[in-house]
Design a protein around this nucleic acid. Structure first.
Length: 271
DNA sequence: CTGCAGGCCCTTA
DNA sequence: TAAGGGCCTGCA
Protein backbone atom coordinates (compact mmCIF):
# COMPACT_ATOMS: atom_id res chain seq x y z
CA UNK A 1 0.00 0.00 0.00
CA UNK A 2 1.34 3.37 -0.99
CA UNK A 3 -0.21 6.41 0.68
CA UNK A 4 0.25 9.95 -0.51
CA UNK A 5 -1.51 13.29 -0.31
CA UNK A 6 -2.02 14.80 -3.72
CA UNK A 7 -3.07 18.21 -5.03
CA UNK A 8 -4.89 18.69 -8.31
CA UNK A 9 -5.84 15.01 -8.41
CA UNK A 10 -9.30 13.47 -8.30
CA UNK A 11 -9.52 9.94 -9.59
CA UNK A 12 -13.30 10.15 -10.05
CA UNK A 13 -12.94 13.15 -12.33
CA UNK A 14 -10.16 11.51 -14.30
CA UNK A 15 -12.40 8.47 -14.75
CA UNK A 16 -15.07 10.68 -16.32
CA UNK A 17 -12.82 12.94 -18.33
CA UNK A 18 -13.19 10.73 -21.36
CA UNK A 19 -9.54 9.98 -21.95
CA UNK A 20 -9.55 6.45 -20.58
CA UNK A 21 -12.04 3.62 -20.90
CA UNK A 22 -10.71 1.26 -18.24
CA UNK A 23 -11.16 3.07 -14.95
CA UNK A 24 -14.15 1.87 -12.98
CA UNK A 25 -15.78 2.75 -9.72
CA UNK A 26 -15.75 -0.13 -7.27
CA UNK A 27 -18.12 1.54 -4.83
CA UNK A 28 -17.51 4.05 -2.07
CA UNK A 29 -14.23 5.84 -2.55
CA UNK A 30 -12.57 2.96 -4.37
CA UNK A 31 -11.61 2.73 -8.01
CA UNK A 32 -9.90 0.22 -10.23
CA UNK A 33 -7.53 1.19 -13.00
CA UNK A 34 -6.56 -1.31 -15.68
CA UNK A 35 -3.26 -0.47 -17.31
CA UNK A 36 0.06 -2.14 -18.08
CA UNK A 37 -1.41 -5.62 -17.49
CA UNK A 38 -2.29 -4.67 -13.97
CA UNK A 39 -5.46 -3.81 -12.09
CA UNK A 40 -4.58 -1.07 -9.65
CA UNK A 41 -6.99 -0.36 -6.80
CA UNK A 42 -7.15 3.20 -5.57
CA UNK A 43 -8.96 4.68 -2.63
CA UNK A 44 -9.22 8.45 -2.39
CA UNK A 45 -10.47 10.44 0.59
CA UNK A 46 -10.00 14.11 -0.14
CA UNK A 47 -6.31 14.68 -0.78
CA UNK A 48 -5.35 11.33 0.72
CA UNK A 49 -4.81 8.61 -1.86
CA UNK A 50 -4.11 4.97 -1.18
CA UNK A 51 -2.61 3.07 -4.08
CA UNK A 52 -2.63 -0.71 -3.77
CA UNK A 53 0.97 -1.19 -4.83
CA UNK A 54 4.51 -1.11 -3.50
CA UNK A 55 6.68 1.99 -3.26
CA UNK A 56 8.70 0.61 -6.13
CA UNK A 57 5.70 0.00 -8.36
CA UNK A 58 4.32 3.43 -7.59
CA UNK A 59 7.08 4.93 -9.71
CA UNK A 60 5.19 3.58 -12.71
CA UNK A 61 1.90 5.04 -11.56
CA UNK A 62 3.46 8.36 -10.67
CA UNK A 63 4.36 8.69 -14.31
CA UNK A 64 1.05 7.26 -15.54
CA UNK A 65 -0.95 9.83 -13.59
CA UNK A 66 1.41 12.62 -14.63
CA UNK A 67 2.15 13.46 -11.02
CA UNK A 68 5.46 15.08 -11.86
CA UNK A 69 3.64 17.90 -13.63
CA UNK A 70 2.54 20.89 -11.59
CA UNK A 71 -1.04 21.54 -12.68
CA UNK A 72 -1.35 24.59 -10.44
CA UNK A 73 0.77 26.46 -12.97
CA UNK A 74 -1.69 25.61 -15.72
CA UNK A 75 -4.57 26.75 -13.54
CA UNK A 76 -2.78 29.98 -12.66
CA UNK A 77 -2.41 30.72 -16.34
CA UNK A 78 -6.12 30.16 -16.88
CA UNK A 79 -7.04 32.41 -13.97
CA UNK A 80 -4.95 35.19 -15.46
CA UNK A 81 -6.59 34.77 -18.86
CA UNK A 82 -9.90 36.35 -17.80
CA UNK A 83 -11.70 33.69 -19.83
CA UNK A 84 -14.62 33.04 -17.52
CA UNK A 85 -15.71 29.82 -19.21
CA UNK A 86 -12.24 28.33 -18.85
CA UNK A 87 -11.97 29.49 -15.25
CA UNK A 88 -15.27 27.80 -14.44
CA UNK A 89 -14.15 24.67 -16.27
CA UNK A 90 -10.88 24.49 -14.34
CA UNK A 91 -12.63 25.01 -11.02
CA UNK A 92 -15.11 22.29 -11.83
CA UNK A 93 -12.57 19.74 -13.05
CA UNK A 94 -9.86 20.67 -10.56
CA UNK A 95 -8.60 17.09 -10.24
CA UNK A 96 -8.09 16.23 -13.89
CA UNK A 97 -4.76 15.07 -15.22
CA UNK A 98 -3.61 13.75 -18.57
CA UNK A 99 -2.90 10.05 -18.25
CA UNK A 100 0.20 8.70 -19.96
CA UNK A 101 -1.41 5.63 -21.42
CA UNK A 102 -0.02 2.83 -23.52
CA UNK A 103 0.24 3.94 -27.14
CA UNK A 104 -1.14 0.77 -28.71
CA UNK A 105 -4.08 0.66 -26.33
CA UNK A 106 -4.90 4.27 -27.13
CA UNK A 107 -4.75 3.66 -30.88
CA UNK A 108 -7.10 0.69 -30.66
CA UNK A 109 -9.45 2.30 -28.17
CA UNK A 110 -9.92 5.47 -30.19
CA UNK A 111 -10.45 3.64 -33.45
CA UNK A 112 -13.28 1.86 -31.64
CA UNK A 113 -14.58 5.11 -30.16
CA UNK A 114 -15.59 6.87 -33.35
CA UNK A 115 -19.30 7.57 -33.82
CA UNK A 116 -19.87 5.50 -30.72
CA UNK A 117 -20.98 6.11 -27.17
CA UNK A 118 -18.93 5.64 -24.03
CA UNK A 119 -20.95 2.82 -22.54
CA UNK A 120 -20.58 0.80 -25.71
CA UNK A 121 -16.92 1.67 -26.10
CA UNK A 122 -16.15 0.44 -22.61
CA UNK A 123 -18.18 -2.70 -23.15
CA UNK A 124 -16.46 -3.47 -26.46
CA UNK A 125 -13.00 -2.98 -24.96
CA UNK A 126 -13.81 -5.29 -22.05
CA UNK A 127 -14.96 -7.95 -24.50
CA UNK A 128 -11.75 -7.49 -26.45
CA UNK A 129 -9.71 -8.09 -23.28
CA UNK A 130 -11.57 -11.13 -21.94
CA UNK A 131 -9.64 -13.81 -23.91
CA UNK A 132 -6.42 -12.30 -22.55
CA UNK A 133 -7.23 -12.54 -18.89
CA UNK A 134 -8.45 -8.98 -18.80
CA UNK A 135 -5.20 -7.62 -20.15
CA UNK A 136 -5.31 -5.42 -23.19
CA UNK A 137 -4.21 -7.52 -26.19
CA UNK A 138 -1.11 -6.62 -28.14
CA UNK A 139 -1.09 -6.57 -31.93
CA UNK A 140 0.59 -9.97 -31.87
CA UNK A 141 -2.15 -11.30 -29.63
CA UNK A 142 -4.62 -10.33 -32.33
CA UNK A 143 -2.61 -11.23 -35.41
CA UNK A 144 -4.74 -14.28 -36.19
CA UNK A 145 -8.04 -12.51 -35.65
CA UNK A 146 -10.12 -12.43 -38.81
CA UNK A 147 -12.46 -9.61 -39.69
CA UNK A 148 -15.28 -11.93 -38.60
CA UNK A 149 -13.71 -12.15 -35.14
CA UNK A 150 -13.85 -8.39 -34.84
CA UNK A 151 -17.42 -8.36 -36.10
CA UNK A 152 -18.34 -10.50 -33.11
CA UNK A 153 -17.12 -7.74 -30.83
CA UNK A 154 -19.75 -5.44 -32.30
CA UNK A 155 -17.29 -3.12 -33.99
CA UNK A 156 -19.59 -2.54 -36.94
CA UNK A 157 -18.06 -0.62 -39.81
CA UNK A 158 -14.90 -0.04 -37.71
CA UNK A 159 -13.90 -3.68 -38.22
CA UNK A 160 -11.73 -3.02 -41.24
CA UNK A 161 -10.05 -0.07 -39.53
CA UNK A 162 -8.98 -2.17 -36.56
CA UNK A 163 -8.19 -5.23 -38.65
CA UNK A 164 -5.90 -3.22 -40.89
CA UNK A 165 -4.16 -1.60 -37.92
CA UNK A 166 -3.58 -4.97 -36.22
CA UNK A 167 -2.21 -6.42 -39.44
CA UNK A 168 0.06 -3.43 -39.94
CA UNK A 169 1.66 -3.73 -36.51
CA UNK A 170 1.71 -7.52 -36.21
CA UNK A 171 3.49 -7.83 -39.55
CA UNK A 172 6.27 -5.50 -38.53
CA UNK A 173 4.76 -2.06 -38.99
CA UNK A 174 6.27 0.46 -36.63
CA UNK A 175 4.20 2.68 -34.39
CA UNK A 176 6.99 3.38 -31.92
CA UNK A 177 8.58 5.80 -34.34
CA UNK A 178 5.68 8.09 -33.45
CA UNK A 179 7.39 8.67 -30.12
CA UNK A 180 10.32 10.34 -31.83
CA UNK A 181 8.18 12.56 -34.03
CA UNK A 182 7.05 16.12 -33.65
CA UNK A 183 3.36 16.74 -33.10
CA UNK A 184 2.80 17.69 -36.75
CA UNK A 185 4.64 14.65 -38.09
CA UNK A 186 2.82 12.31 -35.74
CA UNK A 187 -0.58 13.62 -36.83
CA UNK A 188 0.35 13.29 -40.48
CA UNK A 189 1.62 9.73 -39.95
CA UNK A 190 -1.47 8.65 -38.03
CA UNK A 191 -3.91 10.08 -40.55
CA UNK A 192 -2.46 7.83 -43.24
CA UNK A 193 -4.30 4.94 -41.64
CA UNK A 194 -7.79 4.24 -42.83
CA UNK A 195 -10.16 5.13 -40.02
CA UNK A 196 -7.95 7.69 -38.33
CA UNK A 197 -8.95 11.25 -39.06
CA UNK A 198 -8.16 14.55 -37.41
CA UNK A 199 -10.01 13.95 -34.17
CA UNK A 200 -8.71 10.48 -33.43
CA UNK A 201 -5.18 11.37 -34.49
CA UNK A 202 -5.25 14.18 -31.95
CA UNK A 203 -6.59 11.89 -29.24
CA UNK A 204 -3.78 9.43 -29.91
CA UNK A 205 -1.22 12.23 -29.86
CA UNK A 206 -2.53 13.60 -26.58
CA UNK A 207 -3.28 10.42 -24.65
CA UNK A 208 -0.81 8.00 -26.21
CA UNK A 209 2.12 10.26 -26.97
CA UNK A 210 1.65 13.02 -24.38
CA UNK A 211 1.70 15.66 -27.09
CA UNK A 212 -0.08 18.20 -24.93
CA UNK A 213 -0.34 20.72 -27.74
CA UNK A 214 -2.89 18.37 -29.35
CA UNK A 215 -6.46 19.67 -29.17
CA UNK A 216 -8.98 17.02 -30.23
CA UNK A 217 -12.20 18.62 -31.45
CA UNK A 218 -15.14 16.29 -31.06
CA UNK A 219 -18.83 17.20 -31.09
CA UNK A 220 -18.68 18.33 -27.46
CA UNK A 221 -15.74 20.65 -27.94
CA UNK A 222 -17.27 21.99 -31.15
CA UNK A 223 -20.48 22.66 -29.26
CA UNK A 224 -18.52 24.65 -26.67
CA UNK A 225 -16.75 26.66 -29.34
CA UNK A 226 -20.03 27.46 -31.07
CA UNK A 227 -21.89 28.26 -27.87
CA UNK A 228 -19.37 30.26 -25.86
CA UNK A 229 -16.78 31.44 -28.37
CA UNK A 230 -18.85 32.42 -31.41
CA UNK A 231 -17.43 29.55 -33.40
CA UNK A 232 -13.80 30.56 -32.95
CA UNK A 233 -11.44 29.32 -30.26
CA UNK A 234 -7.74 29.91 -30.70
CA UNK A 235 -6.39 26.89 -28.84
CA UNK A 236 -2.93 27.41 -30.29
CA UNK A 237 -2.35 30.34 -27.99
CA UNK A 238 -2.17 27.79 -25.16
CA UNK A 239 0.60 25.94 -26.96
CA UNK A 240 1.74 22.99 -24.81
CA UNK A 241 -1.25 23.42 -22.51
CA UNK A 242 -3.91 23.22 -25.23
CA UNK A 243 -4.62 19.53 -24.67
CA UNK A 244 -4.98 19.97 -20.92
CA UNK A 245 -7.28 22.95 -21.46
CA UNK A 246 -9.32 20.76 -23.78
CA UNK A 247 -9.77 18.18 -21.03
CA UNK A 248 -11.08 20.76 -18.58
CA UNK A 249 -13.53 22.06 -21.20
CA UNK A 250 -14.75 18.62 -22.21
CA UNK A 251 -15.24 17.42 -18.66
CA UNK A 252 -17.07 20.59 -17.63
CA UNK A 253 -19.45 20.61 -20.57
CA UNK A 254 -20.28 16.95 -20.32
CA UNK A 255 -20.75 16.65 -16.60
CA UNK A 256 -21.96 19.89 -15.09
CA UNK A 257 -25.63 19.50 -15.96
CA UNK A 258 -26.22 15.82 -16.00
CA UNK A 259 -26.08 12.66 -14.02
CA UNK A 260 -23.24 10.30 -14.69
CA UNK A 261 -24.05 7.46 -17.01
CA UNK A 262 -20.96 5.35 -17.23
CA UNK A 263 -19.31 4.68 -13.87
CA UNK A 264 -22.07 5.52 -11.42
CA UNK A 265 -20.01 8.33 -10.05
CA UNK A 266 -21.30 11.46 -8.43
CA UNK A 267 -19.25 14.51 -9.20
CA UNK A 268 -18.79 16.95 -6.40
CA UNK A 269 -17.85 20.39 -7.57
CA UNK A 270 -15.35 22.36 -5.49
CA UNK A 271 -16.56 25.27 -3.37
C1' DC B 1 -40.83 2.86 -35.32
C1' DT B 2 -37.08 6.78 -35.57
C1' DG B 3 -32.95 9.19 -33.87
C1' DC B 4 -28.45 9.23 -32.47
C1' DA B 5 -23.79 8.51 -30.07
C1' DG B 6 -16.74 11.57 -28.17
C1' DG B 7 -15.95 10.43 -36.94
C1' DC B 8 -14.28 8.98 -41.10
C1' DC B 9 -14.41 8.48 -45.96
C1' DC B 10 -15.91 9.44 -50.37
C1' DT B 11 -18.31 12.16 -53.75
C1' DT B 12 -19.76 16.68 -55.62
C1' DA B 13 -19.52 21.34 -56.92
C1' DT C 1 -12.46 23.33 -49.22
C1' DA C 2 -17.03 22.92 -47.89
C1' DA C 3 -21.08 20.29 -47.65
C1' DG C 4 -23.63 16.10 -47.53
C1' DG C 5 -24.69 11.17 -47.33
C1' DG C 6 -23.62 6.53 -45.68
C1' DC C 7 -21.90 3.59 -42.34
C1' DC C 8 -22.41 -0.87 -37.76
C1' DT C 9 -24.68 -1.35 -33.51
C1' DG C 10 -27.38 -0.84 -29.39
C1' DC C 11 -30.28 1.83 -26.71
C1' DA C 12 -33.79 5.50 -25.56
Amino acid sequence: MYEIELDDFEIGQIALSGQCFRINKEGGDCWSVFAFNRCLKIQQLGRLCRFDCSDEEFKIWRNYFDLNTDYSKIKAMVYKSADQYLIDAVNFGYGIRILKQDLWEVIVSYIISQRNNIVRIKHTIEKLCIPFGGNFPTANDLENYSEADFVKLGLGYRVKYLYNMVQFVSTGGNIDILREMSYDSAIKYLKQFNGIGDKIANCIALFGLYKTEAFPIDVWIQRIIDKYYNGHFDFRRYKKYAGIIQQYMFFYERNRDRKMDCVNAVITAPD
